[in-house]
Design a protein around this nucleic acid. Sequence first.
RNA 1: CGGGGCGUAGCACAGCCUGGUAGUGCGCUCGGUUUGGGACCGAGAGGUCGGAGGUUCGAAUCCUCUCGCCCCGACCA
Length: 588
Amino acid sequence: MRWSQYFIPTLREDPADAEVVSHKLLLRAGLIRQLGAGIYSYMPMAQRIALKITQILREEMNRIGGQEFYLPALHPAEVWKESGRWDAIGAEMFRLKDRKDADMCLGMTHEEIFTTIARNELRSYKQLPQVWYQIQVKFRDEARPKSGLMRLRTFVMKDAYTFDVDNAGLDKSFADQREAYKRIFSRCGIEYSIVEASSGSMGGSESNEFVAKTDAGEDLIASCANCGYAANLEKATSRLAPVKDLVGPEAPEEFPTPGVRTIDDLANFPGGALAKNQIKTLVYVYGDHASGASSAKWALLLLRGDHQVHDIKLADTLGASFIRAAQPNEIIDLLGASAGSLGGVGAKQKIAQLRNGDEVRVIADFALKGRRDMTTGANKDDHHLRGVDIERDIQIDQWADLRSVNSGEACPRCETGMLDVYKAMEIGHIFKLGTKYSESMGATVLTEQGKPVPIVMGSYGIGVERIITAAIEQNHDADGIIWPKTIAPFDVVVTVTNMKDEKLRETGEKLYKDLMRAGLDALLDDRDERAGVKFKDADLIGIPYRVTIGKKVSDGLVELFDRRAKSSNDVKLADVVSQAQKLALAGL
RNA sequence: CGGGGCGUAGCACAGCCUGGUAGUGCGCUCGGUUUGGGACCGAGAGGUCGGAGGUUCGAAUCCUCUCGCCCCGACCA
């Protein structure tokens, strides 16, 4: 391409609306323009990048036997009602009506549509496994779109679905996808980790999240440098130092604690207890989106005083799509005491009495297992109980992992490792769905024994814009983007320092053509601009190599500049094509 | 959805408090000088001040409503 004709609307200044680095650079490099919140137009150079990425996606999907489809983005509500997600998913789905007043929606993912094809067409185990994928636009009415292309309302996703006759087949398909994903992200030049994650409302038994470490990310990852354990905080566990409790009294003892409202208050109160010897009692309301408040139920959570509840762990434990902390007045109605004085001892009875049969689920965090001589609220303002033996004195319905882990805690997998918690962004997610969709939608095949069984499914997604964002977050400097070679919009830019100099111009034109002939994507900066402007722009848009055509041409020399290393070498004009070719195709 | 901020030229912003000719820098156009890290001089073009209503002789400025965008939180297949 000739820069003078090509549309690259670069900006000198940072746009006011951009906060994170990738967003600023995407705008400044002339790659994107905003149309609305979470809605962006991709300029020609961004489209070139997206095409390079989708080419890698296709190659790696095809390599594991994937077959590319193209499914509709506009869906009738029926299929979503069949799977149950029309009701399970809340405001995040774009919904609309057609002219006949029928419910429709814009696809946020395509399990239902692929399952529809599978159930109509797949009859026999002999047809399995199938690996189906597409590269398609998705729509999600995000509550808060943000950070440029990080969280969008319309975006491009490579989504794949596998169909197997049994779990062993799914394990193989899942492993294939996992390996393909590793190759994809490596080839895109992204530093990533594979972490355990919650499956959320996708359902299914197991999921791996691919994340790219960046401070702009929205996820927190706990990882162990020693053994490689890594998990999203919504799933991560850690090993805690054991606490030795005294035997304590025969029964809990109530004592007055005037003015004590918080864990800290009680820790500092004479005759109180250290935070780790307290039981924190929280009241939550849970249910699901569809049935709304009418179906809301109560949960009483018990955690160690110095621990924090993790909302996604809690939602997963409750099997609820909606949870919230109870309001202060709700707590008083429920337990007859305010938030600072709650406790699990006798709570079930008290609730049954005060609320006339309302049930409450009492869930205790694993970290409390076996603890004795603890201190907690007495469900009476300004009073606490000491000497509580949690298993003896509290009626617990369920033990669960509810707490957030912290940096510095011991790794749950190995003896010596320590967890580090860092920020990352999700770039891909693979799920073992099992039979959730095939059962609800009736997709079965006959086994070798002639018995109908639901197809065992997996689903696997990669966000194209997330790859672009992660690549920039991880590859930039003060001057601009440094594209990984494999996804760079151009391999090399030929910068003619002075277009009015006939000799330089002709040299640049010829070199440009030679580079193209050699199979490289070349960009010729033939603009009538000063050299400084061209250098700044070239750095900003991040082309991996730049050939500068300057005065040294009279000695038969040009400069070959490496954007990442920021170093340049004089190269004989006759050699520059082969050298550029070697560098550009040398992988990352 | 809760909290905060912002809508004035293509971009970044000032002007608003205290109502009276709409401004600055960058970019853009033309002419000239310059030409290896975002040149300089001169001359220009470009804005219904997000929208609607109100107050006033007069509104970018004051009041009401509304739309949009950004940030924090909640939420997030």
